[in-house]
């Protein structure tokens, strides 16, 4: 299971929306955080989110221990199971 946490603030809501477009991905909530989970990888395209770089590179609040970030660059955020 891959799990990624993103704080629900106005700048970050496009990330959750783009992540939810993948049918394999579930976007739930835990408190004020989006809990983005998948049995496989989670991939979010930066340009699809429209996030400027300052927002993009500071948008990840947490990554579960059985997951890890394999890509976080100007193109995409990709989190995979360990």
């Amino acid at each position: 299971m891959t799990a990624l946490y993103v704080l629900d603030v106005p700048e970050n809501t496009p990330l959750a929306k783009v992540a939810a477009q993948d049918p394999q991905v579930t976007v739930g909530r835990i408190g004020p955080y989006f809990e983005i989970t998948s049995a496989g990888p989670i991939v979010i395209d930066r340009r699809a989110t429209g996030c400027r770089h300052a927002v993009w590179y500071s948008s990840v609040a947490g990554v579960a221990r059985d997951s890890h970030i394999v890509q976080h660059d100007k193109n995409a955020l990709r989190v995979e199971p360990v």
């Binding site: 799990a3 004020p32 955080y33 609040a61 947490g62 221990r65």
Partner: peptide, 20 residues
Amino acid sequence: FGKLLARKAELIVQRAADWE
């Protein structure tokens, strides 16, 4: 940074729902 995000994920699971 990776270790911080992993630890923070645990704290989110422990505390975020109660905070809300």
